[in-house]
Design a protein around this nucleic acid. Structure first.
Lengths: 218, 218
DNA sequence: AATGAAAGTGAGCAATCACTCACTTTTTTG
DNA sequence: CAAAAAAGTGAGTGATTGCTCACTTTCATT
């Protein structure tokens, strides 16, 4: 179970973490993902982390502070690659086709989501109940990343590769399909789920949906 | 705030409900939707319902029993129309085109979801934490409704209206798009969201995605 | 009008909750 | 190496939790 996700929490704003602090965060992630935030007691977290309950409150003033500390860095990293990919995109012109871009983006985000799935589950569960989280989410998502993704899609539209629908609608629909694909993968029993086939089906569906024209024959 | 959703809970299995029982369920729905199941105390529910706390436990043995009582009938009704529509469909042959069927189905389910949104929110929130709910959901959804929906889609495929992808994949992708459309409508500020336009965009995206051929010209 | 069942009550229960604080241990620093 | 700072502890806090139970009120049936 020794993973390297603890780098997530030891970035600039937090500084280095002690062993006990890492254990607390790890235990909290596991418990929150399993039972939910409200149903998990600080006592349980302390016991699972092998730490005194007081230690938790030494580092996090309240239980909610602990939640925010867990969820914030993931939220930031979830949307960041949209910007990074955009820069590589516009400057390096690596992906000539929309299909190539779509495949790269799905692959990239899918791996991130799989790696940090417990935290993302917590994030999705708790957002409706904590206005601060919702505001934080909106801050990180809008408006820059959305603007850049918008420009990206507009670019593909100008190159005649995809249909002339509103860029934000296209983004929403493509993301819906990918989210549905990931959710179904979690829900359906593993034996009945052919992941590669479903992924390919999803990509083709999106490509038809955006009216993809394979290559621009100049 | 006087609605008629209380019929949901006074069906065959429950019998008639007293005024206080209705108040309890109504208060519980509001609180669960607002704060979540775990974060809501039975004390709060009782106060909001204008009822003694003991009254709650007279009718529901535990707090979880109350949750299950709220969520079960909605779960059943959420998937039932798939069967009903199917019967009308296969027998009455009302919808000649896939597009007509899609529009009718979206309209029907959208209205149901909007009407019972608080309960559905509770359902989505709590399913991950209560195995009984998940099992109940699977029981109601699979296998009959899924099988029937599958046959419906196969039928449209045979008529050459839509592409020959796996029916379950098609279902998943179409439902993802609709779910994303509904979720976005909840998330985006009302002034920026043109509902009718986004719905139309969603439908067209699905139709292109399934390779819809408008009418079968015999 | 009498009677038994069902509905409703609220004080009270042990358990648990998030959190505090006086204290000890470890680490950092001049 | 001594002193200060930071990390860690766990018994203890009052408040709150889900739930019980002896009791009263309401209702349906004869």
């Amino acid at each position: 179970m020794m993973e390297e996700w603890d780098e997530l929490f030891s970035d600039a704003e937090h500084g280095e973490l002690t062993e006990k602090q890492k254990k607390i965060i790890q235990a909290a992630i596991e418990m929150f993902a399993e039972k939910g935030y409200s149903a998990t007691s600080t006592n349980e977290i302390a016991r699972k982390a092998g730490v005194a309950e007081g230690t938790i409150f030494r580092h996090y003033k309240t239980k909610k502070d602990l939640l925010v500390a867990i969820v914030t860095p993931v939220m930031r990293r979830l949307v960041a690659p949209f910007i990074i990919k955009d820069i590589n995109k516009v400057l390096d012109k690596k992906h000539e086709t929309f299909e190539g871009f779509l495949r790269a983006m799905i692959d990239n985000r899918k791996k991130f989501i799989e790696k940090h799935w417990p935290i993302i589950k917590i994030l999705l569960q708790e957002i409706p109940f904590h206005p601060e989280l919702k505001e934080m989410f909106i801050t990180y998502v809008a408006p820059e990343p959305l603007e850049k993704a918008k420009r990206l899609i507009t670019d593909f539209q100008k190159r005649g590769q995809i249909i002339d629908a509103p860029p934000l609608s296209i983004m929403r629909l493509a993301m819906s399909c990918v989210a549905g694909y990931l959710a179904a993968g979690q829900l359906v029993s593993a034996q009945k789920w052919d992941d590669e086939k479903e992924l390919e089906e999803t990509i083709q569906f999106i490509l038809r949906g955006v009216g993809y024209v394979p290559k621009k024959t100049i």
